[in-house]
Design a protein around this nucleic acid. Structure first.
Lengths: 234, 234
DNA sequence: CGCGCGGTTGATCAACCTCAACCCGCGTGG
DNA sequence: CCACGCGGGTTGAGGTTGATCAACCGCGCG
């Protein structure tokens, strides 16, 4: 499974580095409410974004209205490099988010001035690429059950679950479905099934507790989840 | 559909730029035969690679032996950024290939010395990321028929088909299947079906002629194929 | 109260996978 | 020369998975 969090530690290091101090005044900080868009598919790509806090999802819509979430991103992530003229992804905040906006025209100059900054960007994008490829492998080859198992484990880890694997799902069934390349009914069914089998327990629609991590892990195995590089993030 | 060719024009420009002249002597050129590996999954990531000619495929293998091709790359592409310690992808040449190898340790220094180089890398990786996301959307939402239609159109364009849409498939049925997230029987069946319906004509197993481009395009529509940024490459 | 939204559940169906047979071209060795 | 095996491809029958369509639940809210 493939949830491409940025590497926050690395990000902090960069933030305190000289490139940020120098450029800070020339980049603007924006705050976005949960469920608002940072940009839409087809918007002109005027800025690149550094996520400073919160989570966003990146998605694409096909003509028939089907959506596929192609990634999640959090603090440390860099957005906008996957497109050229116009944004190919839509980007929606799933939590309150703050981002730093860099005009595309300024990128070249910033890279030239500070190699460390460029290197940081390269690492971030590389990470996202790795995550996208991992999800590709997952969506392409795993069954609904495997996808869901991997997904739950990923989210659990990312949310920094308490002892005993309790955590809150940060999204609705439909969003999970869009990410996993399934229909929301399928997600719902499988969630129920996992519960019925005693693998997880849901105290509310969104609060989840993993009871049989071993079984989920076994399922997910094929296992891009456990040892996935992107999962080292949060 | 998503075949992430590098941007050759851009690559040539870079090649003739100062960074290559300066670094040329410090990077080594390697030649790889078709079907040989540049690196395997799990190999230590000692070098990054710039593809100078030929085509490679990048893939991941799940524990159960299922493989998913996560991308193709040609001249101009940069390989290795998606991993950290070890390579997460296997990389196999599908044609004879020549690559320039850059020791990972030298990257930082090269970026610092020349901002243009860093910028070039950023663009390349961004392109690959966009391609991976596009394929993700395709694999996650399209039917077998749609996938195959998009795929044929992509390949056709990439191979620089002659008048009338004739070209050679550079791979076997099984490889197409691995890329599209299908079984090779399904690919075979659909290929036959396309022929039976007169949409394509196969003079040999690998030589293909697109007869009804309009229909294939219509099918593929949902259409990440036609207006896909990665397709501007070759 | 009525309504809408998100979720669950059931019945049905098509798409795709699985397994197995079979074809064809090719190289090898008897 | 032919028999044979092998790799790659095609085709068929049958089974599963997951999508589709539709009903229904529970809840919050005007």
């Amino acid at each position: 499974m493939c949830i491409a969090g940025g590497n926050i530690a690395q990000f902090e290091r960069s933030l305190s580095g000289e490139w940020d101090r120098a450029e800070g005044p020339r980049t603007s900080l924006r705050h976005v409410r949960a469920h608002d868009h940072l940009f839409f598919e087809g918007d002109q790509r005027t800025h690149l974004f550094l996520v400073e806090s919160g989570w966003v999802k990146l998605y694409r819509t096909l003509v028939d209205g089907q959506r596929q979430v192609v990634g999640f991103a959090n603090a440390g992530s860099v957005l906008g490099f996957e497109s050229e003229e116009d944004h190919l992804n839509g980007c929606e905040a799933i939590t309150p988010v703050s981002v730093r906006a860099i005009p595309v025209g300024r990128l070249s100059e910033m890279c030239a001035r500070n190699g460390k900054f460029a290197e940081y960007l390269l690492n971030q994008i590389g990470r996202q690429l790795g995550a996208a490829q991992a999800q590709l492998a997952a969506v392409g080859t795993q069954s609904a059950e495997q996808k869901l198992a991997s997904f739950l484990l990923s989210i659990c880890r990312l949310c920094g679950a308490t002892r005993g694997g309790e955590f809150d799902l940060p999204m609705r069934r439909g969003e999970m479905a869009e990410f996993l390349g399934l229909r929301l009914e399928t997600v719902s069914r499988k969630m129920s099934e996992f519960q019925r089998r005693g693998w997880i327990r849901m105290s509310s629609l969104y609060h989840c507790c993993i009871v049989r991590r071993d079984i989920l892990a076994e399922l997910a195995q094929g296992g891009s989840a456990e040892d996935h590089p992107m999962m080292r993030s949060a």
